[in-house]
Design a protein around this nucleic acid. Sequence first.
DNA 1: GTCTTTGCGCAACCGAATTGCATCTGCCGC
DNA 2: GCGGCAGATGCAATTCGGTTGCGCAAAGAC
Lengths: 146, 146
Amino acid sequence: MGRPRSHQATQVAAAQGRIRAAGERLTAPRAAVLAVLLASDTALTHHEVAQSLRTGTPVDRVTVYRVLDWLVGLALAHRIPGEDRTWRFRANRDSAHGPHAHFTCSSCGRTVCLEDVAVPPRVRLPRGFRPQKVELTVQGLCAACH
Amino acid sequence: MGRPRSHQATQVAAAQGRIRAAGERLTAPRAAVLAVLLASDTALTHHEVAQSLRTGTPVDRVTVYRVLDWLVGLALAHRIPGEDRTWRFRANRDSAHGPHAHFTCSSCGRTVCLEDVAVPPRVRLPRGFRPQKVELTVQGLCAACH
DNA sequence: GTCTTTGCGCAACCGAATTGCATCTGCCGC
DNA sequence: GCGGCAGATGCAATTCGGTTGCGCAAAGAC
Ligand SMILES: [Mn+2]
Ligand SMILES: [Mn+2]
Ligand SMILES: [Zn+2]
Ligand SMILES: [Zn+2]
């Protein structure tokens, strides 16, 4: 299901380029993890990432966690909180991508970015409250599970 | 900090009334948990609820979980997903309360309902996607942590 | 008061994520 | 190319929020 395994392999070079461009230390786990994210059209859990790496470049689960965090810190990926209390990760494609909504299928768990749905720019808060981040999440059934 | 302990005690009668009105079996843990929620002006984690019950009516943690779920099922409370992967719970005050946004302080963790901020009623989804629930969460600093 | 149904407490369990620490390795300076 | 060192990895153990199974207790119907 999904695209051929080769797609992920072709993303390794792209991943290496991005890591180098960020002026960061290039390692096999980092390139491999980022390549997995780049090859996916849905946001992935750490578990799904580790699974994808089983064949080819096995990476310790802890390292997967650390690399994902590191990617988020560098803004090479973003982290999406899930109703099931697991983070999901997606590579940031274009550098000019703003905060957007997310959709999670309550049946299959697939999470996709709704890139064209911006989060409400202004929310009325109580006096003295200062906003930092706004999260807009839609739960429902995806086209496949419909 | 917060209001006097007595406030929680005064809510026990109110809690009993609500449970009876729902036609459900009345037990000490149920009334105690709901009373804690009613006495709080912020949404509480299961841990905070259990903590509140330590003195007075100690309730097993599993029972707290089950009662909270049960309250949500009866629509006597609602559950708020948190960035820190813990649910928070708040009693439903007025019967006519719709879906609303929530605010979580990234410093002290306090979560409040933004009752007057409605979630976006319509979100543009990909073809074949069917929405079920929309969650709007703001993270930032509350007045106390500002 | 008895009976049945349902909730409670306890202990064990689970999965996601984190931490501590020893070892390894990019990559900078030479 | 060749150290050397800061920083990344792997492994084991741990934390933490939440769940499950089951025997016992008690609510409330009669
Ligand atoms: Mn996204
Ligand atoms: Mn609320
Ligand atoms: Zn689906
Ligand atoms: Zn605060």
